[in-house]
Amino acid sequence: MGAGPKPASSFLQRLKGGDEVAYLITCIAASTILALTALIVFELYHNSAASRGKFGFAFLFSSTWDPVNDQYGALPFIYGTVVTSAVALLIGIPLGVGAAIFLAEMAPPKVSEALTFMIELLAAVPSVIFGLLGIFVLVPILKWLEPAIRAVLGWTPLFSGPFYGVSLFAAGVVMSVMIIPFIISISREVILAVPNDQREAALALGATRWESTWDVVLPNAFRGIMGSVFLALARALGETMAVTMVVGNDPKIKASLFAPGYSIAAVIANEFTEATGEMYTSALIELGLVLFALTVVINGGARLLVAAGERNKT
């Protein structure tokens, strides 16, 4: 805007052409998003003053959550949020990207269209439905699978201790099902967007179909695929309903994925409505702020990693 004085006639001309108007409108749209985000952060910061004042940074490292005695700490919730999201991504990325490659590169177009439609339907299922499926279908299946999982991975601390069904592991698996549609749908689009010239060039050089996909198409689509993963991660970090129904809701930190846990979004949804007293609500709002910061840190970190990886390649 501050590009210096311009001749009035030129401004009018450009106004007529619609450029200035379009600029203004799109700029307003973009700044609205920025303003909204800033407002959310401000509200969270402002309303958590009591809790921030009382606990300071110890809030992040304490693992006591005791509404009766007004003692609050966020660590078990941060731990649960990170662990469930990590499990979801570990399962979701290979499955999602694999499916996207198949749909974009290998499957006959008709099959691809039909499957893509179904995947988009999956993305529209409300999360409470996933939660119920989690309790009544997935948890019994996981219990049935438990001996097999233990036989293979039981030697690691990750799969030790008693298994009640509801657990960090179950939450991660349910969440992976929820994020896979995002990964598939976006990854498929970006893979399809890679110019055909690239494939043809690779094939012309004697590459097999798979070599052209793996060595030429995927590196081209890498940024887009990572974009889909970031979106999936953001959804996983903030997922509430499905998680609270299968995670066990126990704010304790245990190394085993079979143990129950808790997540930030889940505790806010569970306790906010009945929270009385200034400190209690304030602590819950501060948890919201922590979740926001966590999302920024994890997403920012992942983006930096990707950028560094790309620099190394060239």
Binding site: D66, N69, G248, N249, D250, P260, N270, A275
Partner: peptide, 10 residues
């Protein structure tokens, strides 16, 4: 209405 439960699943 919420307490710090010594044991259990929620």
């Amino acid at each position: 209405t919420s307490v710090n439960w010594p044991v259990g699943l929620g």
